[in-house]
Computed example of a mutant assay.
Amino acid sequence: MAVSSQETVIGRITSVYGVKGWVKVFSYTDPIEGILNYPNWTLVQDGKRVPIQLEQGRRHGPGIVVQLKGVSDREVARGYCGADIVVPTDVMPELPAGEYYWHQLEGLVVETVEGECLGKVHHLIETGSNDVLVVQATVDAIDQRERLIPYLPDQVVREIDLASGKMVVDWDPEF
C-alpha cells in the first residue's frame, strides 16, 4: 500500500451495500462514526490511488455504510471493495498532551528503562482491556523475538518522544 508518512489509514471498504452504489466500511476511528468526519478520502488499492469524496454515510448495525460521490451503481462500487481509506494526518484533530494516534506510535524504537533495544512498533492491536504494541525486532534489538507489549501509559509505557522516534517501556525482555 502506498501511503506517505503524512497520511494514515482510517478504514477499509469491505463490501457493497444495496443496489444504489453504497458500500460497507470498516472504520478504524474511535468512535467508528468518526470516519464520517473526513469528507475527502484517497482510496488505495493494488498500488492505485483514487481521490474520492464522501457523499453521505451513517451507522448501520455494528458498522458504517457510505455513498461515495459519483458512485450510484453496485458494480462500480464493487470495484472499490478492499480499498484502504486514507486521509492526510494534518486534517485529524489535535489530541490532548500525552495522547497519541496509532500512526504516531508505529515505527518508534522501543527500549527498556535499562536501555535495551527491543525493536520497533510495527502496529497495534485493540483488545478488550487495553491496546497492545506489536514490537518487531530490528538489527539493533537484543534478540530477534517479536513482542506483544501492553500499551499502558504510566504503567508499562514510561516515555514517548516523537521527535527522537523513541518509546521507553518498563518491560522484562524475557517476558
Rank of each mutant, 00 (worst) to 15 (best):
Q104L: 03
G11D: 08
G11E: 08
E114G: 14
H123T: 13
A83E: 11
G47I: 06
K48G: 09
R78W: 10
T127C: 02
Y151L: 07
Q45F: 11
G34N: 08
F26Q: 15
C117N: 14
A97M: 09
W22S: 15
N37T: 10
Q53L: 13
R49D: 02
Q6G: 14
C117K: 14
W41M: 04
Q56L: 05
I149H: 03
Q104D: 00
D131E: 13
G82M: 10
W22Q: 15
L148V: 07
V121A: 06
V110R: 05
V135Y: 00
P39A: 02
T138A: 04
V168P: 07
E7H: 13
G70T: 02
P39N: 02
R74M: 11
K120T: 09
Y28E: 12
E106C: 13
Y38D: 04
E116T: 11
M92P: 02
H122P: 03
P88V: 01
S15G: 05
L54D: 02
Q136V: 12
T29S: 12
G98Y: 08
D90M: 03
D73L: 05
V132C: 01
E114C: 08
E114Q: 15
Q136H: 12
E126F: 05
L124D: 06
I13A: 04
L95E: 00
N130P: 01
V65G: 04
R49A: 07
R145T: 07
E126C: 04
T112K: 06
I32T: 11
P173H: 05
E159I: 05
L54H: 03
G11P: 07
D30V: 12
V66A: 00
V16D: 09
P153C: 01
M167P: 09
Y17I: 04
L54W: 01
V76I: 15
K48E: 14
L36F: 07
V113L: 14
L54I: 02
V132T: 02
Q144D: 05
I64R: 00
S129W: 06
K24I: 08
V135F: 01
G47D: 07
V135K: 03
R158Q: 15
V87M: 12
Q67I: 00
E99V: 10
G34F: 07
D46P: 06
G21D: 00
V139P: 08
T42H: 12
V23T: 02
V76S: 11
